[in-house]
Amino acid sequence: MITFVESILLLVGCALAVFVWQELMWDVRRRARRQWLSRHGSGCASHICGYLFDDAPIPLPETECNHEALLELLHSVCTLTSGYDPRRVALLSRRMGLDDYLQRRTRGRTRCTRAVYSLLALQTGIDVDLRLPATGDDLASQTLFALSATRLDDTDAAVRHLAARNLSPTSAAMAVEMRSRRYPLSDYSEALHSADTMAVRIGLAAVRRTANPEMTFEVIRLVDTCNDELLEDSLYALVALRLSVVRQSVARAVAHLGEIRRTRFYRHLVVEGYSSQAIELLCRNEPSAAIRDYAISLGESHKRRLDQPQKQTVL
């Protein structure tokens, strides 16, 4: 008869064994990937680049192909470069067997890192069936779902498609970033006028990305509206457009943020090159003296070098 303590020890032992086994397998995979890259990486990259940019014939699949390494390599080529035909990447991936590999990886409940990694490859045009479980807060499935919208030619349809899902600001920004790689981020004014908060969030992410001055009035209107859910997005969009922050509406909107977010926003203003005077004026109504002093001193230290008169060298 197994006692309670023995059963606990058995469970702990099993968990440890599983952990060690997983680590071992991970190490074996990593070594195999590294070895394959050192042997075939250079030649394979030359073939891929030749096919994508120089109209060379499509490379033949390697006999001993490490799909993970090949996927990394293709991802690197597509991340570093632009101007390639996505259809060629899709054809290449099909020929190399990456489609099936990605299907296997993204099936079921995937780990976040795996899914994000795969979706980065997916943005290049590899066609994978995105039948993922629609679990509420699963970032992996959300980002993959967001990615599928980047394949829609029509901007409004893509925004509707993305807005149907509860995306975080980071996921929305990521989706917009991916979309910008294939389609120009031209007209998001309809998204900014939408009654749907999520659609407006996506529109603001596009404004932050492009800093399109045509969206100035929409962004100011959103800051004036002071919608709690979109407060931070609209403030950062305002900064991205390099608009003045010395406004009543901006001060009111900043006051609605928490302490950490206010500090982060002031730091962002300094980094974006706003004058110490503008930051000081914005901080007039700052309730926390520590944050006010921090923001002002940060702005001044950042600008001190510029404010100091240049020393004249007398020869």
Partner: peptide, 15 residues
């Protein structure tokens, strides 16, 4: 830093 980036760039400048 990333090995795949190195190989990708190597392939890019290979011609």
């Amino acid at each position: 830093v990333r090995p795949t980036d190195r190989y990708a760039l190597q392939g890019l400048v290979a011609p």
